[in-house]
């Protein structure tokens, strides 16, 4: 959706035409749901978070001045709503050792099949802190630039770089540490 068209819809909503919010939801629902499902790894929660994102966006439309892209602004709301939802639901698995102390072995997944890899990566992502998971999602999965991630997460560019580097290291560490039994259970399911 073109930015000028987005601004037209926003002006209409601001002037009281609630129905003009429908094309905005239609146009951005896939994008919002995509980031929500990647951060939460829970379809039901992701849909709930995606709905909350649009409700918050609607209520806060007066704050949107058009200084950034509407999609960036929406990403920001979705990002914070999603990581807050994980925190509230306690969806961080802590059954492994402290991920900070694990030496990262980036070749640990080399022998796995594609589907197995996906499951392992998802399991590893679930064990990261909500903020780390959010940053990894934005940078690696949503393929946004560091500059865009810094705007969405309200962090400085250097801080984003450091946090992503650490999160990546933790992720590889967790992948390397996932128990062999779990690996086998995935293999023979």
């Amino acid at each position: 959706m073109e930015e000028s068209q987005v601004h037209t819809y926003i002006s209409e909503v601001k002037s009281g035409n609630t129905a003009s919010f429908t094309p905005l939801v239609e146009g951005y629902k896939d994008m919002v749901y995509s980031i929500c499902i990647k951060i939460t790894s829970d379809a039901e929660l992701a849909e709930e978070v995606a709905q909350d994102t649009f409700v918050k966006a609607y209520q806060g439309l007066a704050k949107f001045k058009g200084k950034s892209k509407f999609s960036t602004w929406l990403y920001q709301i979705a990002y914070f709503t999603a990581i807050n939802a994980i925190r509230k639901k306690g969806l961080v698995r802590n059954d492994l050792k402290d991920a900070n102390n694990i030496e990262a072995d980036e070749n640990s997944l080399d022998n796995l099949e594609s589907k197995e890899k996906t499951e392992m990566i998802n399991k590893a992502l679930e064990q990261l802190k909500p903020e780390d998971r959010g940053l990894i999602t934005l940078y690696y999965l949503e393929e946004l630039t560091i500059d865009e991630v810094s705007k969405i997460a309200r962090l400085s560019i250097s801080n984003v770089k450091v946090k992503i580097h650490r999160a990546r290291k933790k992720l590889y560490g967790i992948l390397n540490q996932l128990p062999q039994e779990e690996l086998n259970s995935i293999r023979y399911e």
Binding site: T18, A19, F21, V25, K29, Y33, Q51, V55
Partner: peptide, 10 residues
């Protein structure tokens, strides 16, 4: 999904 959001927003 859109219908659900719009019913909340209205």
């Amino acid at each position: 999904f859109t219908h659900q959001v719009m019913s909340k927003v209205e």
